[in-house]
Amino acid sequence: MMGEFMQAVIAKYNYWIYITLMMIGLYAMIAKNNLIKKIVGMNIFQTAIILFYVSIGVKKGGTLPIVEHGHGAHAHAVHAADYLNPLPHVLMLTAIVVSVATLGVALALGVKVYREYQTLEEDEILARIREK
């Protein structure tokens, strides 16, 4: 019984890793006081989701999703079971680009905030706003 449970847990280790990372990211985004640390948390959060998706694509016994070929090819039939699932990789290429773009805009906003308040600690900024 215990052994079966442990086996089930180990067979799905990819999910535990991504859930842990996601929780770390989410915690950092909500609880951290420094705006840059929040951005770092945001990136951990996004990376966790990327890990999750990429792990969906794994197939035991599958190889890279590049079809073996040569000139005068099509000699042998291609079997889907021999290659990894390419779709999650494609989706995550998109998600990576989105996270880079979001990071760029977030940093630009951070620079703008810093230019205005000379600090990136959220409580200090809020205190300064209240003073006005």
Partner: peptide, 12 residues
Amino acid sequence: PLSTLNYLYMGT
């Protein structure tokens, strides 16, 4: 900028 940054965190 600060309120947009907060929007960005929530939006993400």
